[in-house]
């Protein structure tokens, strides 16, 4: 069970219809790879975010599979076209079954 997990998202508050905006996301997470051993030589079990998605008004913008080699606090920056006002919904899926969600509204104007 990863502790101290906190998602963060940066989306502009408004855009012109049809604009391409830049979205930045970061989730604080240790991303334990499952390759390391503790002081007693036992393998520390893998615990990573394994999938990240972003949807806009229910339509998929990006869907990412994350693997164990991705480092601590995974950061994504990507672009999205904004055809209309609505909500960006971000979802991170943890190995331990936890799902972290964040929603940001964007207005047209």
């Amino acid at each position: 069970m990863a502790s101290g997990v906190k998602p963060r998202v940066k989306v502009p508050k408004s855009a012109a219809a049809g604009d391409v905006i830049t979205i930045k996301t970061l989730i604080s997470h240790p991303m334990e790879s499952g390759q390391r051993k503790d002081g007693d030589g036992n393998i520390i079990p893998r615990s990573i975010i394994n999938r990240f998605t972003c949807e806009f008004n229910g339509e998929l913008v990006i869907d990412v599979t994350l693997e164990a080699a991705i480092s601590t606090n995974p950061y994504f920056e990507f672009e999205s076209m904004v055809p209309e006002a609505g909500d960006f919904k971000f979802t991170w899926y943890d190995d331990d079954g936890s799902v972290y969600e964040e929603t940001k509204a964007i207005a047209i104007g």
């Binding site: 101290g4 930045k24 970061l26 604080s28 606090n73």
Partner: peptide, 12 residues
């Protein structure tokens, strides 16, 4: 600050 991972520590 959003791009600066050190700010995670500062927030904590």
């Amino acid at each position: 600050d959003f791009d600066n991972p050190a700010m995670l520590g500062a927030e904590a």
